[in-house]
Amino acid sequence: MLIKEIKQALIGKTISYFDGWNGSCDYFKIGYLKKDGTSVRVFPEKGKGWGVFIPIRIIPTLIEKGRYKESNEVERCSYEKTWTLCQ
């Protein structure tokens, strides 16, 4: 997907994010985004906060289904990351 298409699909939606490895979570209405390597980084507004990284490869599924769950393992410890989009 092109960044322009991603902006049209994400700006104005609310994102909920949870990282089970370190317990970080975030919930806000997306007002600004920028490309950051292989991810898109979304923010509530330009220059505010750290934002949430969304890997570009998961964005089509996230837009289509409204949710994406990724399972990982580090030294035999399993954890999940979850992204959810709301209207």
Rank of each mutant, 00 (worst) to 15 (best):
K34L: 12
K35D: 14
T82V: 13
C77P: 00
K69N: 06
K7M: 08
G49Q: 07
K7V: 01
S71P: 02
L85Y: 04
G12C: 03
L85A: 03
I54M: 01
V42L: 06
T38L: 13
M1W: 07
E45A: 13
L62R: 03
F53S: 10
T82I: 14
K4W: 00
I15A: 11
Q87N: 11
C86H: 11
Y32Q: 07
L10A: 01
L10Q: 01
F53Y: 09
P55Q: 05
I11A: 01
I54L: 01
G12P: 03
N22P: 00
E5K: 06
F28R: 09
T14S: 08
M1A: 13
S39T: 14
M1L: 12
L85D: 10
Y32I: 05
I58V: 14
K48C: 02
I59A: 05
R57H: 11
T38Y: 14
D36F: 14
E5G: 06
R76M: 14
C77A: 15
F28K: 05
I11N: 01
I63C: 05
L85N: 07
K13L: 01
S71H: 11
R67Y: 08
L85R: 05
W21S: 10
P44C: 04
L85F: 04
K29Q: 14
E80Q: 14
W50F: 07
E73W: 04
R67L: 11
V52S: 02
K7F: 02
P60S: 09
R41W: 07
I63S: 06
I11H: 01
P60V: 08
C86F: 06
G23L: 07
K13D: 00
D26F: 02
L33P: 03
Y17L: 06
Y27A: 00
F43D: 06
K13A: 00
I11P: 03
S78Y: 15
